[in-house]
Design a protein around this nucleic acid. Structure first.
Lengths: 125, 125
DNA sequence: TCGATAGTTCAATAAACGTTGAACATAAGG
DNA sequence: CCTTATGTTCAACGTTTATTGAACTATCGA
């Protein structure tokens, strides 16, 4: 297992890959919830999304989200903490992320969202 | 051949489908050029994009762009005129199209664009 | 009416995608 | 050390995707 997962540099972030990544309902939901969480702690564990799908499937989606530059993974013990690469995305494609998030918010009822309550804990180590 | 191709209603436009549609470089280029053309005439013929790919492949991409609600096709003789569904998209997902177009403009050099000159003619019938 | 023009439709292909479960790796807690 | 918890990796699968060429439809112009 590589110590730190691969992340593209800011300049390597490609528009088609970002849009393709966001076009999957599960990944869009992940990004959406990550954005919601930003107001509180900016980071979430993989297991926080376990309601969306199985572990291995989530790992697959997380890898895609990393590969396209949408989020960054920080390894801490057995946990992986993920957060949006907001600044990189804003620098690369100004206004895009917020437009997508706003659109997702309008259609939040069509997204496979996690229940909600348990997403607000901030106990970090 | 059905007289008028199928188009979704405004409310039927889905965010994941739109993002998926825009994630293909050829389709993104089509939408981008359609947007560029808006300043002049708002419509382009299928054959105006023949530099991007073959006829049948373009028909495939046009169908996807219609099905997801990004553009509308008007049949006129043997020609099909396409235009962006700007108002519908703006009503459904405010700011999204412009954010994507702005991002595409920033990376225009990475898009498979048509040469350019021949896109400015406005001779309609 | 005949031929050229503009697009669509269909079948075939190869590649990519999303999903699953089993096996694996790593770190934390007793 | 052993067990548990967190995630990753891998192989397998069925599905969807983009692309091609050939056949087809429909319209326009001579």
């Amino acid at each position: 297992m590589s110590r730190t997962p691969h992340h593209p540099t800011r300049e390597q972030i490609e528009l088609p890959m970002v849009l393709d990544c966001l076009s999957d309902p599960i990944r869009l939901a992940i990004v959406y919830q990550l954005a919601q969480q930003e107001r509180v702690s900016s980071e979430l564990r993989c297991s926080d999304f376990s309601a969306l799908s199985g572990k291995s499937n989530l790992a697959y989606h997380f890898a895609k989200l990393r590969d396209c530059g949408l989020m960054r993974t920080r390894v801490a013990g057995t946990n992986r903490f993920m957060r949006l690469r907001r600044e990189d995305l804003e620098a690369r494609f100004p206004g895009l992320l917020d437009a997508v998030l706003g659109s997702a918010a309008k259609d939040a009822d069509r997204l496979p969202l996690v229940s909600g309550c348990e997403l607000v804990e901030v106990d970090r180590k």
